[in-house]
């Protein structure tokens, strides 16, 4: 199918973008990488009156270490994040996840901020952000605010973002020598959305772990933390962590709920092994 007609405006500054958003609110959509948006337009699942193309805004695609955070600009492309030395060194969970996102042609266009703002429950980056306890920087005509990952993902494709707001950057705590991360997903074809996936972070504490954060994707309306399993894993009990998984996935085109629950346990064992691996 082809998109319904819409007006198109390419903006050059953040100020211009938020002014247009303030004016048009829900009737406008922001066009960043477009790898989800244009597909939904083509299928007429979405028919906004106005597309605000933010790709011409300078300075929204940086990847830099700023103190205790790695800051990823909302317009940083997946391919750029995948090749980034800063990400490889200071945000290893993101580095592990990147090759699983879509396919090369998709990663050349898709944006980091777009993936977070769209909040597909089966996408990798929202779960990574949740596992890392990162933050989202938000701008609007009224000013700026920050929202922590735990409060950002609200429901199916629903976030703390209001219609007049846009994501400007994502901030991720810098990994140090005690940071442990793990990532695994199962998809029917490499690069497709996962049937089930798991992103995890923790801190090494002697031979054990503390601050375990396990964020599943593809098993609910949002990325989901499993706090009882996190506590069990921090106690060093992988079997207890697997039995403590309290996920309630629904059947979807990828897999039945029963299969998803089983695979969630399989992934937890794989990711636990990654978290417990000793690092040089």
């Amino acid at each position: 199918m082809k998109p319904a007609p819409f007006a198109y405006k390419k903006v050059r500054t953040l100020k211009e973008a938020v002014a247009l958003l303030a004016k048009h609110k829900d009737n406008a959509r922001l066009l960043a990488g477009g790898q989800s948006l244009i597909a939904t337009l083509n299928m007429r699942l979405s028919a906004p009156a106005l597309l605000i193309d933010i790709n011409g805004i300078r300075g929204l695609d940086g990847i830099t270490k700023k103190g205790k955070f790695v800051e990823v600009g909302a317009l940083a492309r997946h391919a750029q994040v995948e090749r980034s030395d800063v990400i490889a060194r200071y945000a290893p969970l993101i580095a592990l996840a990147m090759p699983h996102i879509g396919h090369p042609a998709i990663r050349n266009r898709g944006s980091f901020g777009g993936s977070i703002a769209f909040a597909d429950p089966a996408a990798e980056l929202p779960a990574c952000l949740l596992a890392l306890g990162g933050e989202v920087d938000i701008a609007s005509a009224k000013g700026k605010r920050k929202v922590k990952a735990d409060a950002f993902f609200k429901g199916l494709f629903e976030t703390a973002l209001r219609p007049h707001e846009l994501v400007t950057a994502i901030r991720i705590p810098v990994a140090d020598k005690n940071t442990r991360v793990g990532f695994a997903e199962l998809a029917r074809r490499h690069g497709d959305y996962a049937m089930v996936g798991l992103a995890a972070s923790a801190r090494a504490n002697g031979k054990g772990l503390t601050d375990v954060r396990l964020a599943y994707f593809g098993v609910g309306d949002t990325p989901i933390r499993v706090k009882t399993a996190e506590a069990a894993l921090a106690d060093g009990n992988i079997d207890a962590a697997v039995s403590a998984l309290d996920l309630e996935p629904h059947d979807d085109v990828q897999a039945t709920a029963k299969l998803k629950k089983h695979l969630a346990g399989v992934l937890l064992r794989r990711v636990a092994a990654q978290l417990l691996e000793t690092r040089p």
Binding site: G34, I38, P104, A105, I106
Partner: peptide, 14 residues
């Protein structure tokens, strides 16, 4: 860079 021709608009290629 390779892209999906169906996921970019012609106007974006100005």
């Amino acid at each position: 860079e390779i892209v999906r021709g169906c996921l970019m608009l012609a106007v974006q290629c100005d």
